[in-house]
Design a protein around this nucleic acid. Structure first.
Length: 309
DNA sequence: GGCCAGGTCCAAT
DNA sequence: ATTGGACATGGC
């Protein structure tokens, strides 16, 4: 049976395409998702989120519909770049995924492309996960830590050096290291996660952001490093720590949302951003000066040489 | 064929 | 504290 939820400020498509969650199948705007033992389908008709196979309360949590996105957006909308990212990807929300699956997913993501992450996770579910049926739907559950294959079998699925990380993480999860994390501060949870081999700062920050509802967590991956250096450090290569600290002060306590919008914006529109940044740096360098060099003709010649706009 | 991918670990400064 | 290379695999 189909129900719906009225959801202002939500885009299912942008949320699903934003590289925080990889185990969904879509056809004609209909998404099928499996989390733990639930199988559900969702699709969006304007401000209605239609769904089957799950409760409204669960969806509210999973898609963070309880977050006041309009208010969050106002708080991170601190500069023209973020303004543009918010405009283009409006409705993108952070998820609250199953912690173990999210951990496994971002171990799998290490130095990997999204198509391959998706493929690897599908192979893991197909090989080790139980097939479940519910309400006429069938899907593969992501394997529990108990069901997860060992290093050798994961290697044979093409996981490469990540196989050892995954096997080790499964072992520690069986020992219960994720259990207490919801009750710890973000810094404490981060420390606890980084005990696992294969979880360093970036992966830990992803887990905090995408599973544990810590919207100030700011994962610094290759794209964020590249786009932040260009837009906020005038092209200089900044350290990850510098980037995180800048993000915290510039975007505030919802910096994690800013990160996610910036990530998709950079990933999808990189060449355009580069050109705009170049143009803006030229204009900024020229405008404050009162020298004759700041004449329109000088600017024009600069643009002709360096900035294809 | 070299380089890069939602990085991490380890050793050598 | 910072930096370079190794680590598997696949796509361009």
């Amino acid at each position: 049976m189909t129900s719906f939820l009225t959801v202002p400020d939500f885009s299912l498509r942008h949320t699903m395409r934003s590289g925080q969650f990889f185990r969904w199948r879509e056809r004609d705007g209909l998404y099928q998702i499996c989390q733990r033992n639930r199988i559900f389908r969702v699709w969006q008709e304007d401000d209605r989120l239609c769904f089957t196979g799950v409760s409204a309360a669960y969806l509210r949590t999973f898609f963070s519909l309880d977050h006041d996105l309009a208010g969050i957006a106002r708080s991170i909308d601190r500069d023209p770049w973020m303004h543009e990212a918010l405009r283009r990807y409006w409705g993108l929300r952070l998820l609250r995924q199953d912690p173990w699956e999210c951990t496994a997913a971002f171990l799998t993501s290490i130095a990997c492309t999204i198509p391959r992450i998706t493929r690897n996770l599908a192979a893991i579910a197909e090989t080790f996960g139980e097939e479940i049926r519910s309400g006429g739907l069938s899907d593969r559950r992501f394997p529990t830590p108990e069901e997860m294959g060992g290093e050798e079998r994961l290697r044979r699925l093409g996981l490469g050096f990540r196989a050892r990380y995954l096997a080790d993480a499964a072992r520690l999860c069986r020992a219960g290291i994720l259990e207490d994390l919801p009750f710890l501060s973000m810094a404490e949870a981060r420390e606890a996660l980084m005990v696992v081999q294969g979880i360093a700062e970036k992966v830990a920050d992803c887990i905090l952001l995408f599973a544990f509802n810590h919207p100030s967590s700011f994962p610094v991956d290759t794209w964020i490093r590249k786009v932040m250096s260009l837009l906020y450090f005038s092209g200089r290569r900044a350290t990850d720590r510098e980037i995180r600290e800048f993000a915290g002060t510039h975007f505030g306590r919802y910096a994690g949302y800013a990160q996610q919008y910036l990530y998709v914006y950079a990933r999808d529109c990189w060449s355009e951003i580069e050109q705009k940044a170049l143009l803006r740096s030229i204009v900024r360098r020229r405008l404050p000066t009162r020298r004759p060099a700041a004449t329109p003709s000088a600017l024009e010649s600069l643009l002709r040489e360096g900035a294809p706009v």
